[in-house]
């Protein structure tokens, strides 16, 4: 049951992972995935953009929260088993405490119009943050018509036709695999 050897030339400790993920957990309004990308790729340069995209894609096909999956994988890649645990603890624990406090606060102030307006305004901005993250991930695919067609089909199926996720995965995964196979050089 020995731990994996850490990734070579990786100076990242579990404590640094915990602090990094705990920080974005506390400031990460509106779904934390854009923040995880910001921390891991832009801010700390723990992963390249390509590697993050591929970990993210993999996480989408694992059970459970996809943010959680990415955090487990980034933490584990940088600092082994303890790195995974540190990243998840940092990501979830402060947010869980905070949301319970917020629920109590809201219970006492829900009648105030300003409070409702604030929550709604942040919801709209959060949608924009997720859109920006998706667009940034489309950019590296811009030279692949195959990938762009699949992106478009999935967006249509999920957002316009509102098909159940299981159907989308069951049809698009084989289609995308065949397309990837055919365009392989």
């Amino acid at each position: 049951m020995a731990d994996d050897p850490p990734v070579p030339a990786s100076p990242v400790t579990p404590l640094q992972l915990f602090v990094g993920f705990a920080t974005i957990s506390i400031v990460g309004f509106g779904g934390v995935m854009p923040w995880v990308r910001w921390l891991v790729v832009d801010r700390r340069r723990w992963c390249s953009a390509e590697e993050f995209a591929s970990l993210f894609a993999l996480a989408n096909f694992l059970p459970g929260g996809n943010v959680l999956g990415v955090s487990v994988m980034v933490g584990g890649r940088l600092a082994g088993r303890r790195g995974s645990l540190a990243a998840v603890l940092g990501l979830v624990a402060p947010a869980a405490v905070l949301v319970c406090l917020l629920a109590e606060l809201y219970r006492r102030n829900a009648h105030l119009e300003a409070v409702q307006g604030m929550v709604e305004g942040m919801g709209s901005a959060a949608a924009g943050l997720i859109a920006a993250m998706g667009l940034r991930m489309v950019w590296p695919l811009r030279k692949s018509p195959r990938a762009l067609v699949i992106v478009l089909l999935v967006v249509t199926a999920a957002a316009v036709l509102r098909l159940p996720l299981v159907w989308i995965l069951a049809t698009m995964l084989p289609a995308s695999l065949i397309a990837a196979r055919l365009t392989e050089r």
């Binding site: 096909f61 998706g134 991930m137 699949i150 989308i168």
Partner: peptide
């Protein structure tokens, strides 16, 4: 094969939200 599907799901989430 997986990457464009994941990106499509993100954009769809943003649109729905």
């Amino acid at each position: 094969a997986i990457l464009p599907i994941a990106v499509g799901l993100i954009l769809a989430t943003a649109g729905l939200l």
